[in-house]
Amino acid sequence: MRIGIPRALLYYNYYPFWKIFFESLGHEVVLSSPTNKKILKDGLESTVDDACLPVKVFHGHVIDLINTVDAVFIPRIISVESGEFICPKFLGLPDMIRNSVAGLPRIIDCELSLYRNKTGFMEHAIRVGRLLGNSTQEALRAYLLASSKYNSYKKFRVKNGRLPIDEGDKSFFEVTAPDYSKYKDGSFKFNVLVLGHPYNIYDRYVSMNLIKKLQDFGAKIITPEIIPERNISAGAKKLNKKLFWTLGKNILGSAYYYMDNCKLDGIVHVASFGCGPDSLVGELLERKVSRDYSLPFLYLNLDEHAGEEGFNTRLEAFVDILERRRCGESNVSSHG
């Protein structure tokens, strides 16, 4: 079977696992194209109006897959960590898609909730395998293979600081040797922590190439995806109360850990316009950063805007602040 995976939302987290899983069951995995103007337009036109931009982009990616696959993989995700939740929009995603997109192929929709059940991911994978007509045995074998490869991928990612960014049409998982030669360690001027949901910071179209732009300004980019999970947990423990949004916890945990333990020059927080969980996370983050650490902090709010000028202005002004802190006053570069 040709199984389509939309290059959106949790793609940046779980794609390596599902690719190996499906392929070892003998299926072909097809990715939607990287986000482009048409995908955005299709998404905006089909999605219910009050959804956030990433959900709209997801709709566009599903539409991009319609005529090329036999089935689209859209699991119903409730929780990916024990005792935590993911945004409620993920829970309703298969329903939203069925309601809004016409001419759909089969949707592989299977519930995932690890809230009370830590080993639930294996059961989830087996159920997915059975939905595809494979036996429990086969699905289990595929699960074991995929999870071991996925875990070593994650270790590799953290160890090498490899951000999950696609290159051209190639998925981040298939990019073997990204061209970081330009950004050798000694050449970085600042360490910048970029925080946000993976689908906002790594989608080059939606984020207006934020990471590349910051790298071109001489920033070394750190994101939650390349920080060891135990450090994120240690950081998150500094909160007065457990934060039960997984993505928000990763953001705050990374920030709290990094600010205390590593050299950091500034923080960029990216959020989608109208994001419920992030309104809370952003507020906590901004208060902490400016009150206790007095680090330069830039908040970027993304929506369907195509004009990059406003975005660039904010970035440039932020880099000016970093630059001045580095070199002292009166040193303002002539461009940017």
Binding site: S294, R314, I321, E329
Partner: peptide, 12 residues
């Protein structure tokens, strides 16, 4: 002390 330390702009 005559140096920009922080700024914010209206969002979208």
């Amino acid at each position: 002390d005559g140096v920009v330390v922080d700024f914010a702009m209206n969002t979208v």
